[in-house]
Amino acid sequence: MQSPWSRREFMATSAGLTGGLVASQLVSAPSPAEAVAQPTPAHYPVTLNLNGQTQTLELDARTSLLDALREHVHLTGTKKGCDHGQCGACTVLVNGRRINSCLTLAVMHQGDQITTIEGLGTPDNLHPMQKAFIRHDGFQCGYCTPGQICSAVGALSELEKGIPSHVTADLTGPIPVSQAELRERLSGNICRCGAYSNIIEAVTEVAGENG
């Protein structure tokens, strides 16, 4: 991927993204008068393929892919639960692989194919995984749900491709779709309502249909 900006610029902005914030939270002693005004943060054009449609945005380099989706494109199906890669609510598929969209900057995704929950299915045309979640009541408050569904779709595709997980016994043969495999692979998606048992039933059903 051809990046429109240098590695050095990236390091500077991403350090600002986390380091400074933590410092101001914890330091109660007078901080040195280093807070001199800095130039307006750089904006960059980025073209994303979002759910099959090309979209060009002019974004602050600090904007996460998650915030680009939610705040700039208004695709709010992708959720912000922690903004730190700890909960999985922001899971989307980038070039077919699931990632936490809060942990990646939007401008890093020039030309990438991004599928969000809105791209999987709509209320009138549900994806099989969305149907299964409804049928098995694989959610309650619904806030982790788009992430769970994107993650489940991604996990089944990984299983199909033979990508092993921590619990895979045989690293060379085909991987059976077991409950242990699904639980392991979906453990990055927290559901505080605790719908886990139902989610696994829903994903197992779809895996069976696919198989």
């Binding site: 929950i117 709509t122 209320p123 549900l126 969305q130 959610f139």
Partner: peptide, 15 residues
């Protein structure tokens, strides 16, 4: 099934 289910599983329920 939940009557708000379709909105929740498609990300169209606005929080």
């Amino acid at each position: 099934d939940r009557i708000d289910g379709r909105a929740k599983v498609t990300g169209t329920a606005a929080y």
